[in-house]
Amino acid sequence: MSGVVWGMVIDLDRCTGCGVCQSACRLENNIPPQQGGRDSDWISVAREVNGQAFPESDALFLPKPCMHCEHPPCVAACPVGATVKSGQGGIVSQNPARCIGCRACMKACPYGVRRFTWTDPSWPRGMDATLTPFASVRPKGVVEKCTFCAHRLVLGNSGVSGAREQDGTGGFVTACAQACPTGAIEFGEIATLLRGREAFALLAEQGTGPQVHYVTRRAWVRGGK
């Protein structure tokens, strides 16, 4: 495992905003149907615009998971060690069983990708029968976030442990990247993914060193970020 650093390269020119990554993530990680209009997705897809009026306008969709920073400010902020930078390829873990719900990490995160469970999760009657064994049902009052589908690293991509032999760690891929039809989200060893590409990171000036990078041919996106 040593030396491998997992990461994503998201091609903004290839995202059509179809939302498959979001629903794949919801289903994989047992995120309950949205309640009360609060953001609960671990990966959000927002429309970004260049601020110009039609016809000079331009827009794209920006998928935003947890950046799994090299120097995560959330880890420094957590008083109980519920979120740590793990040795498993730099995945920033989030352990809801240990979380005390103080939300210091949410305040520390410059990307706004951490979610607080304001209520106990609930599903329409009977629908909790489709919960997957890949993520716990988080109770009210904890913080949760994208884990790069770390369970797939443990269990293998299909969630079935025996499949691991074929996949190998090289085949480890997140649910969103797997379901993305256009291949806008690429997941893997970040050094390999970045090779020969002109990628940029969100809020690079914050010095958090995100492991999620973006590529686009649009100059205004880079300028604005």
Binding site: V84, S86, Q88, I91, S93, N95, F134, S136, A150
Partner: peptide
Amino acid sequence: ASVDCVSCHR
């Protein structure tokens, strides 16, 4: 073996 949180907690 790994003792990282992510290896055993979901």
